[in-house]
Design a protein around this nucleic acid. Structure first.
Lengths: 333, 333
DNA sequence: TGCTGGATTTAAAACGTTATAAATGGCGAC
DNA sequence: GTCGCCATTTATAACGTTTTAAATCCAGCA
C-alpha cells in the first residue's frame, strides 16, 4: 500500500502495482486516454504523483520513435558578439514549457557543412532542427527536406519548396541605415558585406543599393574584404581606403564587431566619427550605448528570433505544414 | 546477400541476417569483445559499414542506463559578452570525437536555481553536468554530489568533498591588474565587484586587496553596486563618484561590459582614460583591440576553459575520481 | 435466462539493444 | 573412441514504454 522502499526509479510497473491496475491501463491513463474511466485516470495520476513517477525518455523514444530533442546548429563565427548566446536563450525560452531537450551541435564551415545534418538524419538524433546563417540554396535545407525532418531556418532561402523560417529584414535595415546617413548629410556611403553566399548578404546589398540610388548619393561596395575577414583585416582595409582620395563619409555596419573595427580604423586614420564621418550599425546587445563617440544603431532582437525559431519548430513537429510558418522581424527606426 | 531494399534503418538484426551470425554475436563483435573471433569481428564490421548501420541511441540508453548526453547549464547574465558562446564552443570541441550529445538547459537565477539539476537527476537526463558561476557552498554541487552524478564546475567551491573544477585565477588577475595600474602611476584604485555570492568574487577581492596593500596605494571597493546591476547603473555610479572629491584614478574591470560602461562614464565625466585615469579589464574576446582609447587588457580564454570542462567531465564519467581533476588557468601578463 | 453491445480493462507483442547463461564445435589427451 | 576443455557462438531475458487485439464486466433487452 505504501511506497516501495526500493531505491530505484519508479516505472509504470511500480504505479501499476501500487494502484492494482495493469501497466497498459496506467500508461493510457497517464496519457489521458478518454477510453479510460475518469475515476481511474485520477487515481493513477495521484499514485504517479505520490511515487514521483516520471516516464523514462529512452523507453518512450525507443517505442514511439520520437526523440523529444531538437538540434540547434551553432557557429561561433558571427558578426554579432554572443550571437548564439542570445539566440539560444530565445529557443530555451520557447521550449521551456515542453519536455523537449535542446541539443547543440557544431555548424562547421566549408565543405563539411552538411555532415552535421546528415548525422542528425541518419542517426535519428532529433525531432527537428534549427539552422542559422542560411544560404539561398542551402544544401542543409535540401537534406532535411528530403529526409522529411522538420526544421526552421534563421534566414530565408530561394527554394520553391516552402519551409519555415524566421528572418530579420536586412533589406529594410540597409535602407534605413542609408537613410540615417543621408539625413546626416553624408555623400558617399559604403558597407562591408557578409560573405555573398549567405542569403542575407543579398538582402543587404539590395536594400543598400536601392536606397543610395533613391537618395542619389555616391557609394562603393568593396569586394576585397567581407565579414569573413578578421576585424583587423577589415580595419586595415578601411585605413587603406581612408588614405586614398575621396574616401566614404558614411559607413553602414552589419554587426558589432565590424562596427568597432570600423570606428577604430577611422579614428586611427585621424578622422572623427560623428564629425567628419558617420557610422551606423546593427547591434544585438546594448553594447554601443557605451561606445564613444556614440553612433546610431538599429537593434536586432536575437532572443526574439530564437523564441520564434523554437515556436515554429514545435509547430512543424506537431505537423503544421510549413506554408504559413514565417516570421519577418522588421527593424525599428 | 545484398542490402535489403527496405527503407527502414538497419538494426543489429539486419546486420545479423546479412552476415548469418546471431544478433548477440553482432552486438559483441561491434563492441570489440575479444571473445569474438577476429575474423568474425572484421566481417561484422564490414557488413555494418556496408549497410550503414548505426546503433539506436534510445535502445542503448534503455538497456545500459547510459544517456550519452551531457548537460550544460547556461545563463545569459554574465560579465562577458557571449560567455556561453565561447564556453560552449570549447565543450563542443572537447566532445567532438565522442558520441556524446550536448544538452543545454537554463541556469535560472534565484531560489529556483536548484530546479534544473534536480530535474536532471530525477529524470535521469544526462550522464554528467557542467555548472558555471559557482558559489562557495553551491547547492547544485550538493545535489549532484549526493546523487552521485558526475559534474565539473567552472569556478571552485569551498566544500571539503572534492569535485572536478576548472577555474581562471581571478586572484592573480586582480593582483596583475592592480600592478598594471600602479605601474602607470595610479594612486587610488577601485573595482566593481561581481555579486559576493560567487566564489570568484572572493578571489578577486582577495587579490585586489592584497595587491593594493602591498603597493601601498589607496583604494575603494564600493558595495553600492555590483555586476548584477545594469551597465547603465554602473555608469551612473561611476559618474556620481567622479563628481565627488578625490575620485579613483585606476579602475579594475572584471569584464567587457563593465569596462565599456566604465570608460564611457569616465569620458562623459570629462576625464580622459589613459591620460587622467587608467582602466584595466579582463576580456574573453579580442573586443578591446578596437576600442579607443586603447586600454590594457588581460585575456581569459573561455574556449580553453570549456574544452577543459568537457575533458574533465568525460574523465569523471569514465570513472576517474575527482581528486586530481582540477585546472587553474592563469592570466598572462 | 441468455444475448448483445458498450464501456473498461488487460495480456502480449514490439521497439533495438546488451548481458547472462547456456549451447555448440573442434581438438588434444587418455 | 570417448571425454573434457577451450574457444566461439547463441538463445533468451531483460530495459520501460506504447499499441494492438482480445478479454472482461455489466446493463439492458428479448
Amino acid at each position: 500500500m505504501t511506497t516501495k522502499p526500493t531505491g530505484k526509479r519508479p516505472t509504470l510497473r511500480t504505479v501499476a502495482e501500487e494502484t492494482g491496475f495493469a501497466v497498459a491501463t496506467v500508461s493510457r491513463a497517464l496519457a489521458g486516454d478518454p477510453k479510460i474511466a475518469q475515476k481511474t485516470r485520477d487515481e493513477v495520476a495521484r499514485a504517479a504523483q505520490r511515487l514521483n513517477y516520471v516516464p523514462d525518455r529512452a523507453a518512450q523514444r525507443l517505442r514511439t520513435g520520437r526523440t523529444k530533442v531538437i538540434s540547434v546548429l551553432l557557429n561561433l563565427d558571427h558578426e554579432f558578439l554572443g550571437f548564439s548566446d542570445e539566440l539560444l536563450d530565445g529557443v530555451i525560452h520557447a521550449l521551456s514549457g515542453t519536455d523537449f531537450a535542446i541539443s547543440v551541435m557544431p555548424d562547421i564551415r566549408g565543405p563539411k557543412r552538411l555532415e552535421t545534418v546528415q548525422k542528425i538524419v541518419h542517426q535519428h538524433l532529433s525531432d527537428g532542427v534549427i539552422l542559422t546563417q542560411t544560404e539561398p540554396f542551402d544544401d542543409r535545407v535540401r537534406v532535411l527536406t528530403e529526409a522529411g525532418l522538420p526544421f526552421v531556418t534563421h534566414g530565408r532561402t530561394e527554394f520553391s519548396t516552402p519551409h519555415a523560417w524566421v528572418d530579420f529584414d536586412n533589406e529594410a535595415y540597409a535602407r534605413l541605415a542609408v537613410q540615417k546617413l543621408v539625413a546626416q548629410g553624408r555623400k558617399r556611403l559604403t558597407m562591408i558585406m557578409p560573405g555573398s553566399r549567405f542569403t542575407y548578404s543579398q538582402h543587404l546589398r539590395y536594400g543598400f543599393l536601392s536606397a543610395v540610388r533613391e537618395a542619389g548619393v555616391a557609394y562603393e561596395l568593396p569586394d576585397e574584404v567581407t565579414l569573413a575577414n578578421t576585424p583587423h583585416e577589415i580595419a586595415a582595409f578601411i585605413r587603406a581606403r581612408q588614405a586614398q582620395p575621396n574616401p566614404p563619409d558614411g559607413h553602414v555596419c552589419v554587426g558589432e564587431v565590424t562596427a568597432l573595427a570600423t570606428i577604430s580604423a577611422l579614428q586611427d586614420s585621424g578622422v572623427q566619427p560623428e564629425v567628419d564621418v558617420s557610422v551606423v550599425t546593427k547591434q544585438a546587445s546594448p553594447l554601443f550605448e557605451h561606445v564613444r563617440p556614440q553612433i546610431q544603431t538599429v537593434f536586432e532582437n536575437l532572443r526574439e528570433s530564437g523564441a520564434h525559431l523554437g515556436r515554429l519548430l514545435l509547430e512543424r513537429i506537431d505537423g503544421t505544414p510549413p506554408e504559413g510558418l514565417h516570421v519577418l522581424l522588421t527593424p525599428e527606426a
